[in-house]
């Protein structure tokens, strides 16, 4: 039996741990509403939005994230479908190459990408920020969707095939609707990784014309020195989209990040 003392100690432990986890978050939220060099209250967010030029950086982040999520999502679905249910020529090697991408650090690809894209005049463009992230997301997406398609019942697919449905129709009419949970997990993780990515936009948009939200916050921190309130408000603005998605769909974050790590 668990004694009352032990139970009480457990609640203390929970409380201490939760406080540790929330302390930095609380620091930011409280400061964001404070009046350290700012009007104070919710007006801080409007002021930070103006001063930190978050309007344009948030818009860039929305565009990049939407592009990466949609393109990487559709391509991952297609590739995962083929790897999971069909015989792809050289499939074992090709799939191993996709798995390789799960471990390749961004640092090693960003250096040659910068110099090669500069040769083509593509640095400081939307594409230079978005396409490398599509490639990175494809590694996880293909791995994740293949696992789903392998586990989907073949009987439904066979039945549809006998009814004369083509592979394209089977994918979009049967497998995609049935695989919504797995697909949502892929989407939220791709969104989070893209939204939070720092190194790729830092290097690829080095002239500072095109900024994503995290990059905008980093520049804001470097330039703005009159009080902490507006910087904190900026941090809240940048973190909010992912945090909101997390609060509503946290099951997907947990499952994706934990199961996604358990590779064969």
């Amino acid at each position: 039996m668990i004694s009352r003392v032990e139970r009480g100690a457990n609640y203390v432990l929970l409380l201490v741990f939760a406080t540790f986890a929330l302390w930095p978050v609380g620091t930011i939220v409280v400061a964001a509403l404070g009046s350290d060099g700012a009007p104070g209250g919710l007006a801080n967010f409007a002021a930070a939005w103006e001063t930190g030029r978050f309007g344009s950086s948030m818009l860039t982040s929305v565009a990049v994230s939407a592009f990466v999520v949609v393109v990487a999502g559709v391509f991952s679905l297609m590739a995962g479908y083929a790897f999971g249910t069909m015989t792809v020529p050289g499939g074992t090697v090709l799939f191993a190459l996709f798995l390789l991408g799960l471990t390749v650090p961004t640092e090693v690809i960003v250096v040659p990408l910068y110099f090669d894209l500069r040769t083509f005049g593509l640095t400081n463009t939307f594409w230079a920020i978005a396409l490398p992230q599509v490639a990175q997301s494809l590694a996880f997406g293909t791995f994740w969707m293949r696992a789903y398609f392998r586990s989907s019942p073949t009987s439904i697919v066979e039945a549809a095939r006998l009814d004369g449905a083509g592979t394209w129709r089977i994918l979009w009419r049967i497998l995609v609707p049935a695989g919504r949970p797995a697909i949502v997990t892929m989407i939220v993780l791709t969104f989070m990784w893209t939204w939070n990515e720092f190194l790729i936009p830092l290097v690829m948009a080095s002239n500072g014309q095109l900024r994503t939200a995290p990059l905008g916050l980093a520049f804001f921190q470097g330039q703005y020195s009159s009080g902490f309130a507006l910087l904190a408000a900026g941090a809240v603005i940048v973190a909010l989209p992912v945090v909101v998605v997390y609060l509503f769909l946290q099951r997907h974050f947990l499952r994706g990040m934990l199961d996604g790590a358990v590779r064969e």
Binding site: A21, L22, P24, V25, I28, M192, W195, N196, F198, A213, P214, L215, L217, A218, Q221, A235, V238, A239, V242, V243, Y246, Q250, F253, L254, M257
Partner: peptide, 10 residues
């Protein structure tokens, strides 16, 4: 788990 979803800049 919240710290995992925050951008490192934040």
């Amino acid at each position: 788990f919240l710290p995992q979803v925050l951008a490192m800049v934040v």
